[in-house]
């Protein structure tokens, strides 16, 4: 304070010291923003990238057992970051009449474990004893929602096609 007063008698005028002080802060804020905004974009970038979803052949309608959710597994090539790898997708296909089908993900709606068909008559999740019926509705355990239904098409050769997730 005393320095400022010595340098400058009139308190209304911007002192040299104060001018420098403000300039430094302004430049600092400018650099902070020009670094900070790209840095945030850089960090959240993977979440912004769209995955191209092609069509995947799941299997033939004739392979689906009547009255029992049948698990179809397909391997697709996927690029995650800089790594090209093969990942397995698994879906239950269910039909009662061989005409109308339901396709659902086998990923448990509780915390994401993989479910499988139990011969006792339900879809079972081993992680926390979650149980679903043949249509994917919750019968017991912690899962909050039915298994996720997936849109699909059946082409002229009776092949079930889904969109890559």
């Amino acid at each position: 304070m005393t320095d400022a007063q010595m340098e400058n008698e009139d308190p209304r005028e911007l002192s040299r010291r104060e001018f420098m002080d403000r300039s430094i802060k302004a430049i600092g804020a400018f650099i902070g923003l020009t670094m900070g905004i790209p840095a945030v974009g850089y960090l959240i970038s993977p979440a912004l990238q769209q995955q191209p979803g092609g069509r995947v052949r799941l299997g033939r309608t004739s392979e689906v057992e009547i009255g029992v959710p049948t698990l179809f597994t397909v391997t697709i090539d996927k690029t995650t970051g800089w790594v090209k790898s093969e990942i397995d997708l698994a879906y239950f296909v269910y039909t009662e009449d061989g005409i109308n089908f339901t396709v659902m993900s086998n990923i448990c709606t509780h915390l994401g474990c993989r479910t499988h068909w139990n011969e006792a008559g339900y879809i079972y999740c081993p992680c926390h004893d979650g149980r679903f019926d043949v249509q994917g509705n919750v019968i017991a355990g912690p899962p909050p929602r039915p298994l996720k239904r997936v849109e699909f098409q059946v082409d002229a050769n009776n092949t079930i096609l889904i969109r890559e997730a």
Binding site: P38, A39, Y42, S45, Q49
Partner: peptide, 14 residues
């Protein structure tokens, strides 16, 4: 490095 340079948002800048 190639991914940073060409795919990541502002990766070329960083």
């Amino acid at each position: 490095v190639n991914y940073i340079q060409n795919e990541v948002l502002f990766g070329w800048l960083i």
